[in-house]
Design a binder for these strands. Structure first.
Lengths: 163, 163
DNA sequence: TATAATTAGGACCGATTAAGTCCTCTTTCA
DNA sequence: TGAAAGAGGACTTAATCGGTCCTAATTATA
């Protein structure tokens, strides 16, 4: 499934919450703020800390804060902190682990497709995510539209092709 | 895991194989051509047929062929035929199924991010995929690079941010 | 100095889902 | 009529995800 793990999703929500708050926040606090299961939030925060995206303080009045400005944290980094490198296909990352690698004509292209998707996510910063209806993200989506695009919203195309 | 299901991967390989062959091919034939497990190939082909991407003929000398030119089949269509709509997050597709939808500041942006990724995959046709080292896909990847890009390969950034 | 608050680091389990396998039915050609 | 081939679906196993819990280690404060 081309879907983020739920915990990754939680991660983006937590990071968004952190980006919007000035002070350090405890896991308990963040979980309730974002309406997330406490233990799941804890797990996610631990991973985010390990990846260096948030800074943690232990002890009473401890908690988490962004390790750097939200503009310097990309969605890619959040995703990869929580679920490892983005790899649409097995061969996008590990060479030689795919059994049909030799005979597969599509491999080199999957590398490139993977990179394109990764770049798309790379260009979305946490700061963008944290602003509802961010113009920058809308602009990104527009920029990714096909060059000779007719003006049909992607949604309707999807509906058409699935009929 | 932002990863395609293995069967979806098989699907792209099978479609690639079909795109490269002029005649109708049986499932057995295709599976051995692409070094895929026969039963898996069968399952994939059935789904592709149901989605209208390949045309099937039953009976002796039956088999599968592309339903239309490879240039008119996108990677998105293959993916969605095999695993349903592309939805990075729960809320990318179904509204109201996510419990924190109200409080979630990131939702509207995930819609757009999802669309951007989808557009990227939309622009890769089966014909592109079938040509090893397709220039069109490389060009796509290039076009997706950030506007004010420093010339650091995405790979090395990944390595840096994961250290 | 003891205690409460808080993160670190795992272990564990249940539920979901993917992948692979198998079976039966239908269609078509020789 | 039989063999080749697809259609449709059931079933099993393995993987993995999400949730929960437990035990340290750390820090402020009463």
């Amino acid at each position: 499934m081309l879907r983020l793990a739920k915990l990754t999703d939680y991660g983006t929500v937590i990071m968004t919450t952190l980006a919007q708050s000035k002070t350090r926040r405890s896991a308990t606090d963040l979980a309730s703020s974002a309406s997330l299961p406490l233990d799941a939030a804890r797990k996610v925060l631990k991973d985010l800390a390990r990846a260096g995206l948030v800074q943690s303080e232990r002890g009473a009045h401890g908690g988490y804060a962004l390790a750097r400005p939200a503009t310097d944290i990309s969605v890619t980094q959040i995703i990869e902190a929580l679920e490892g490198p983005i790899a649409l296909t097995e061969c996008s990352i590990h060479d030689h682990r795919c059994e049909i690698e030799q005979s597969c004509g599509a491999r080199s292209n999957w590398h490139l497709i993977n990179r394109a998707v990764r770049m798309a996510l790379d260009q979305v910063s946490l700061a963008d995510l944290a602003v509802p209806g961010s113009g920058r993200i809308a602009a990104l989506a527009r920029r990714f539209a096909p060059p000779h695009a007719v003006s049909i919203p992607a949604d309707s195309i999807q509906r058409m092709t699935q009929a």
